[in-house]
Amino acid sequence: MGTTKRRQAGEGGISEYQTKAGPRFLIKYPVLQEYGTKRVVLKRGYKTRRDAASALRAEIRRMETGEWVNPSKQPLAAYLSEWLDGQRLAPATLASYRKNVRLHVVPRLGAVPMDRLTGTAVDAWMRELEVSGRADGQGGLSPRTVRYVYTILRSALADAVKHGRLAVNPTDRSTPPSPSQARPPEMHAWTAPELARFLRWADEHDSDIAMAYRLLAYTGMRRGEALALRWRDVDLDAGRVAVRRSVGVVKDKGKGEQLVEGATKSGQSRVVDLDAGTVAALHAYRAVRGSIALDLVRDTALVLGTLAGGHRHPERFSRQFVDHQLQARRALGEEQLPVIRLHDLRHTHATLLLAAGEPVKVVSERLGHASATITLTVYQHVHPGMGRQAADRFAALLDG
């Protein structure tokens, strides 16, 4: 009769136990922890002794090769708090991560131990966000927002795997909204006559704020970049501005909000050339500011700052644009001025240049995109209409 080979110390063991569904088997094996102490790991639920033996051999092999990971019993909320504290991100980005974790992850998944989080649970969480995820209780979150929150969770759990806290990332086994489902809202752009119409109206009603609108429209700068521009960044003799930084609103629960300057979105500085008309407008604007207070035109002063010398609040600035746009539409006629967002002045700048045949690389550099490929992707709606022009130009070359 054959004998069962006894396992040596340190090799673990297999035990049988009874359940309502019949006999089951568990495995147990010792593991060496971070500080040199040992503990015994138990895993239950194997239907046959053979399955249990196979699982035990796999666990021992992973320990021998250094691949074994001690599943973390830490609740997800506690881990995410620790993870966020260790992130090196721009202040506005970190504040956004904290807000989304607090509002959308912790209430539903925060109490779940990390080793119990599954791809199925992540999928159910995302579906719940889409149905009833709004913090105000007024329905669900957009696919774009759900994908953004999922990306934060995925990044956090990827670090848990990297640092040996988890064996696998459960988000690898989940299905977030696709990039096409999470695409940004459709952009709108004014035509050249519509933009000129609005800027004339703004200049007649508030020349101070009109300068801000003109800079955004004529350079393609982002809102935060324009509001962080200082006179030392403006070379009126050479007709160019250096875009070096951006200002944003950082909101931390319990700490209120503050305006913080940081790098541009791409992290890179760039130089944007100005047309003669904008240079002349800046000369006149600076003269008016200087007549109010010399401090407003010093090299360190903000070009578009408040009369007190501080930053304009980015979100209030956007709301001011909405108010001015509504006033202009009433004055000029709604059909003369379609509704757009402040950010669409940037889209208008790019769309008009591309439609006029300006090389994509030039437009990309003005916008501060990391590559021309991004410009092509974002503004691909401009290109179909340009295809016919290209075909006609090619034919004209041969006909000539």
Rank of each mutant, 00 (worst) to 15 (best):
L199C: 14
V382A: 12
Y29E: 01
K265E: 11
E225Q: 11
R44I: 03
F321V: 03
P107C: 03
V105N: 04
M63D: 11
G66Q: 00
T306C: 08
T118Y: 12
Q327F: 00
K99L: 07
L117R: 06
H381N: 01
V112S: 05
V249K: 09
H104K: 01
L157G: 15
T348P: 14
V106W: 09
A356H: 10
G2F: 13
P75K: 08
A350L: 07
G140Q: 02
S246Y: 08
G267L: 13
V149S: 08
G45D: 05
A124N: 11
G86C: 08
K43C: 04
Q18A: 10
T348R: 01
T3F: 12
R197A: 12
A158Y: 07
A135P: 04
A111F: 06
R240C: 15
K255E: 15
G290F: 00
E128A: 15
L215S: 09
R88F: 12
L84V: 14
G110K: 03
T145K: 04
A78N: 12
R62A: 15
R366I: 14
V101C: 10
G220P: 01
S72A: 15
P30F: 08
T93P: 02
V297I: 14
K162W: 02
G10P: 00
F198P: 01
D206S: 04
P184A: 11
H343L: 05
A372E: 13
S371V: 08
A121G: 15
A281W: 00
S155R: 02
Y379C: 02
L195T: 04
G133P: 09
F198S: 08
R197W: 04
L227M: 07
L89W: 05
S54L: 08
R50A: 14
D123S: 07
T348Y: 06
R230A: 13
H283D: 11
V247I: 07
S269H: 13
R147D: 08
R214Q: 14
S207K: 02
R57W: 02
V322W: 00
R329Y: 09
V250C: 10
L166N: 10
S54P: 02
R49K: 11
L307V: 14
K253R: 13
M211N: 01
L26N: 07
S72K: 03
T191K: 01
D208A: 13
R286F: 03
G248R: 03
L141M: 07
A293R: 09
S178P: 12
V41E: 11
R197I: 03
M211D: 06
Y17A: 00
